[in-house]
Amino acid sequence: MTALTRIQAARSARFYAGRVLMGFAMVAIVVFAGAPFVWMVLASLQPLPNLLGAQMDVFAFGDATIENYVRIVTEKGYLQWFLNSMIVCAVVVGANLVFDSLIAYPLARMRFAGQKVVLLLVIAAIMIPAQVILVPLYVQMRDLGWLDSYAALIAPYIVSPTGIFLLRQTFMSLPRELDEAAFIDGASRLRTLWSVLIPNSLAMYGTLAVLKFMWTWGEFAWPSLAINSAELRTIPVGLAGLRSQFSTQWDLLMAGSVLAILPVLLLFAFLQRYFVAGLTSGAVKG
């Protein structure tokens, strides 16, 4: 063996050792991130006795049943929770797309009195954690008579500082000539926003819609405070309720959890690009 081939052999041995190590690391990450989902799905198919104490056996495929799914829908009113979550999400996402655009547009393209103050209000709002205002929000909704209603679930979320900020950045990145042209043709401000800026920012709108849906879908602390009646529960509130009664109803909880993440997973499967963009740019919830 010449010196050169020996060096090459040593190099490739190290190369393959590196590859194997990398492979192990990747498998470890996938198992850590993914295994809990596998357990959840397997457990959701087992009758309660197989999920308790020493008899716990999620791999008892012989006992597998969809009974849990049937029961959480028929006995616990899962469809109602689902409907509530969907209504709240639809209104919140829709309202956000409208209101966020209406604030982002003047901030990006117009000059008006108070512009700096409005921009500051929006950016500072991104940094206010929702948890800080739980107490006064409760008092406020009580005084308005909105507690225990859709209004309480929706109102605090209909405009998103993060959304405004992201849209403003997107609008500002578009060439001004685009809307100048529309302007010269005599289009109004609203018209310009609607037929020039929005069609050119669709990717950001997709990101925003996905992000806001995901956040609203998972919202827990405020809804569980604001809602009392069983028929107004959203999915997270309903699920958390299954946990505290006497002992934990793992069979129903696991089936409910699978159903709860199904819509987000479906969206993720089809719109992964928007999720990836949203998770990084909207990493601060707001």
């Binding site: 991130a33 809990p36 995901m214 879908w217 998972g218 827990f220 999915i235 997270p236 699920l239 958390a240 959890s257 709860a260 993440i261 987000v264 997973l265 993720f268 999720f275 998770l279």
Partner: peptide
């Protein structure tokens, strides 16, 4: 894990 509700 990042996309599912925290409660779940």
């Amino acid at each position: 894990p990042a996309i599912i509700p925290m409660v779940v």
